[in-house]
Write a protein that binds this DNA or RNA. Structure first.
Lengths: 217, 217
DNA sequence: GAGATAACGTAACGTCGTTAACTTCGGCCG
DNA sequence: CGGCCGAAGTTAACGACGTTACGTTATCTC
């Protein structure tokens, strides 16, 4: 269906000592991460390829991860902390809450474009493929979303939004959805005839997303 | 990885007569469509299950379709005409171009929610999984997008957009991206804690998307 | 009625995720 | 020091998948 992962056989890994089985876990995560980057698709990275890369047999993976989905999501969840930090550092030093919202939106889109496959896996896959523990944690209770929600609340408190827009949670979801819209389309359809000045278009898009709720000055 | 498709063996289909091999093609499409609806996932509908359903052996599928991707996309492409018609009939009789834009946006989101898996396959899958002929046709040159672009142009001509927004193509992409944002998140993460009054939220969202570019009255 | 050919079927290849059952190594207790 | 137990893997295999090479059967044409 799609290209398979490369399978470079490698020297067999020495067995870990008694209490240190978790070392293999980290190596598996690292190898999966690299393979995900190389292939650019979660379906193309097979358990067998990961095992080969680490120098271990496929069933050994299952000692450390429930199944393939669990492994892939564990890898992508690592990118979540990065997203959170990325948003935080992007909005750092920006005093105006509206400008801060804009900075976070831009950072979000840039993050998606820079990490397309993790983004796809986290935000664009069906819920059934998402392990239980991530359904709530990764989406709602994650720090990135909370940053946006708090910033929206600050905008409300500062009277920067048009009348009627008073629910920060609702507004945060809306912002997220709009910014996700362009991000996901860029990720899914990079060959679409996007405007030539892509960065400028993205910046303009961010402004439009804000203009929908921000009070005119 | 995920649940497999049901495999109810069925009476073997009588062979088609000489010029009528295309009849099987239609039956395959219909069976695939039904299986897609039942399983709710393209990965869960296997070539073998489709063949079983039709009463034919798996290799026979390949006489009529290049591969599985081709088959699935052929099915989903059928939904495109429906989307186009749905947008047209939703905007029919709406004189004001801004209101028409809004009507189309709402219709688009409703369409996605009503046909989640086709929507997912068409708009949320990676470009590599999209057959050549759909990359341009289905996305840019499709009638639905053209409707939005034309409507945006009418808004421009009527002076309904804020100064600076003069490129209908650019604006149409932006509208599409915003509306797609919420649609795709609803499709991908239905269990997310969305606002309780979902329909009202969607309607509000559509208004916000427009308010980003529409001139205040 | 014979040959061409469209419309399938048979058998198989290689891949995948996953599981059951076995083996080997290392630390601890007596 | 020796035995043992559990951690850390391996071996072998199952069933399903997409896909292909090749054989077969029925229908149309002449």
């Amino acid at each position: 269906m799609s290209t398979t992962a490369p399978r470079t056989t490698v020297a067999r890994r020495p067995r870990a000592r008694k209490g240190e089985g978790a070392a293999l876990r980290d190596e598996i995560l690292a190898a999966t991460e690299r393979l995900l980057l190389e292939t650019g698709s979660a379906e193309a990275v097979s358990i067998r390829a990961v095992a080969d890369r680490v120098g271990v047999t496929p069933p050994s993976i299952y000692r450390h991860f429930d199944d393939k989905n669990d492994l892939i999501f564990e890898v992508c969840a690592g990118h979540f902390a990065a997203l959170d930090e990325f948003l935080a550092s992007a909005s750092e030093g920006v005093d105006d809450p509206v400008h801060r919202l804009r900075a976070m939106g831009l950072a979000y889109m840039r993050f998606g474009m820079a990490n397309p496959e993790p983004y796809r896996i986290l935000f664009m896959t069906r819920a059934d493929d998402t392990p239980e523990e991530y359904q709530a944690v990764v989406l709602r209770d994650n720090a990135a979303f909370e940053q946006v929600r708090r910033c929206a609340q600050e905008c409300i408190d500062a009277g920067r939004f048009r009348p009627g827009f008073t629910d920060a949670y609702r507004l945060a979801i809306g912002f997220w959805a709009r910014v996700h819209g362009l991000t996901s389309l860029l990720v899914a359809k990079p060959q679409f005839p996007w405007p030539a000045d892509r960065d400028a278009f993205v910046a303009e898009y961010a402004s439009i997303c804000l203009a929908g709720v921000v009070r005119d000055e």
